[in-house]
């Protein structure tokens, strides 16, 4: 069994996953409420919270699985990309755990982790496929040719899709995280009420900064009372524009690579509009869309583990090398 630890952003998570990809326990302590009043993740606050939670969350995962460290064969931990101070909490604790019991340590790339959420028990999809990874920190298209190997096709040139949702929610006076609050309000609105732009870029890259600006001006043009009446239409139209940008690119990627199957992972995979617009795609289960440690332990199954003592000087990285 693999014990996974994830502390790259604002969720402190631990999980126990078997070699065959069965999730025995997955514990996620979200800090969303802590960061809500700032409208985004404050790195120092996140790191402080990770330190408070990393021990209890790991203990809770072991208890939930009815397991002890005797049952654990390897420790997996997110090495990057993410917030350096936050990653260091997880990596330091994981190194200490592995060292104490002379276990191998598996450093996992967070983005590989998201893709590996598709190889857990509940989600049967096998490579090759095109993968859309959309979250608050990342928006990427990858050609996944094998478990544990993928090739970058396109990425965002400015904001991540989840960030675009967060910024849009702030402009509309909605709560954080923005994806969920816009999605909720969009149910009551008309997605065609406002024609927001969808960036047209060469290749398979994304851009959401123009869309955010368009929303800003649409909000500014409306009187207070009018804005209240049209908020749902704005949310629906804004979501529609993000979803259109994502699903068009997915279709482009499928055409260019000749891969006919599509999977969607990351926090934005929970968005109902995106699920509707990609009816044939495989979506990561809701429990494994937002950051979690089950996906990290899952990815560790396809990475060469570092045996003791090769991980004792392991460091983290902020962005993918």
């Amino acid at each position: 069994m693999i014990l996974g630890i994830e502390t790259s952003c604002d969720e402190t998570a631990a999980a126990l996953v078997t070699d065959s990809g069965e999730v025995r326990a997955s514990v996620i302590a979200s800090q969303a409420e802590l960061h809500a009043r700032y409208g985004g993740v404050v790195p120092e606050i996140a790191s402080r919270r990770h330190l408070e939670l990393v021990g209890p969350v790991a203990r809770e995962a072991l208890a939930a699985a009815g397991a002890s460290l005797e049952d654990v064969d390897a420790i997996a931990v997110t090495q990057g990309p993410g917030l350096v101070g936050a990653l260091l909490v997880g990596v330091s604790a994981a190194k200490a755990l592995a060292w104490s019991r002379k276990l191998p340590l598996v450093p996992v790339d967070h983005l590989d982790g998201h893709i590996a959420s598709l190889y857990l028990d509940a989600t049967p999809i096998e490579p090759p496929f095109v993968c859309l990874l959309a979250s608050g920190g990342h928006t990427q298209l990858r050609a996944v040719r094998g478990r544990g190997s993928s090739e970058l096709l396109g990425t965002t040139l400015d904001d991540a899709a989840g960030e675009a949702f967060d910024k849009g929610a702030r402009l509309l006076g909605l709560g954080y995280p923005g994806g969920a609050s816009i999605d909720r309000l969009a149910q009551e609105g008309d997605p065609t009420a406002f024609a927001f732009p969808v960036a047209k870029l060469a290749g398979l890259d994304f851009s959401f900064s123009g869309l955010k600006t368009a929303l800003l001006y649409a909000v500014k043009r409306l009187e207070e009372a009018e804005l209240d009446a049209r908020r749902a239409d704005l949310a629906a139209s804004y979501q529609h524009a993000i979803v259109t940008a994502l699903s068009r690119r997915v279709a482009d990627a499928a055409r260019k690579t000749g891969l006919d199957r599509v999977a969607v992972v990351g926090g934005v995979a929970a968005n109902s509009g995106l699920r509707e617009s990609l009816p044939d795609a495989v979506f990561a289960p809701l429990a494994y869309c937002t950051d979690n440690a089950a996906m990290i332990a899952s990815a560790a199954r396809f990475v060469e583990p570092l045996p003791y003592p090769r991980y004792l000087d392991l460091d983290v990285y902020a962005s993918r090398r």
Partner: peptide, 19 residues
């Protein structure tokens, strides 16, 4: 250092949990 202090405490938490 905030980050430095946390590294030591995270190591302590890992060791304490393991043993």
């Amino acid at each position: 250092s905030f980050t430095g202090t946390r590294i030591g405490l995270a190591v302590a938490r890992g060791l304490a949990l393991a043993r």
